[in-house]
Amino acid sequence: MVSTPNNAQSLNVGLFVTCLVDLFRPSIGFATVKLLEDNGCIVSVPENQTCCGQPAYNSGDQKNSIEIAKQVISAFKGFDYVVLPSGSCAAMISQHYPLLFKDDSQWEAPAKELATKTFELTTFLTDILKVETVEATFEQQATYHDSCSGLRELGIKNQPRKLLSSVKGLELKESKKAEECCGFGGSFSVKYPKISERIVRDKIEDAQKTETQTLIGGDLGCLMNMAGKLKRENAPMEVRHVAEVLAGMTDVPAIGEGEDK
């Protein structure tokens, strides 16, 4: 149920759950809903959403990118804000959709409108809802990975750290290469798996040097890549999405961990 707005806000927020979260890790979606509702938002999840179109866009498939973008724009009409638990997909909508419809008299304006009201989750919480603290406990030492799109296209750096610093029991330790790419890059990881594997190998080595137990990040693609490599190397480090930690929903197995362990 919708929780009572605690600070007179009752913003209508459309959740774009993102395809990876939808398919692989719904718990991130539920954590996102919880965080938004706890902070007074009314959350809806339009059924007509699939993917933001980034795979087509980054493969140079302009035609399908445009068609998918139109579908997203239509599906998310009428919300005060659109929120995604991913910097990469948020950047696709807020930075690239307007470019897709440049000089399109019918679609440019709605694309821009959607762009201005679309936010990545932690940024939305800190910058729009002015959330200072969350009610959550996570008795761990952890390190944070800055996903490339969020970091460089949206300037996401302090927002998740600020919120994580209010999680009880959690201690964040910075890794040297926090801002370096993990080698995922969407289709890159399957087109050039050997290069991708080498990059993620370096990345997890660096993360493990922090001697923390958990690696936290805001984009499931990167997290699956790093978790997949950690598990292949039988490393004990666990990987979680920032939404789950902030929502206190860390009872589900970490990414790539089984129920059996």
């Binding site: 759950v17 692989f24 059924e47 399957v190 798996p193 993620v200 292949r232 197995p253 089984g258």
Partner: peptide, 29 residues
């Protein structure tokens, strides 16, 4: 149960050097 796949048909490029975390189950939608 295991939480990941060590090899997946059609995704061998991925699983050659790393595991593929498995879906949790039913989709969010």
């Amino acid at each position: 149960k295991k939480g990941r796949f060590t090899s997946v048909p059609f995704a061998s490029a991925w699983t050659e050097g790393r595991d593929l975390p498995s879906p949790q189950g039913r989709t969010f939608q």
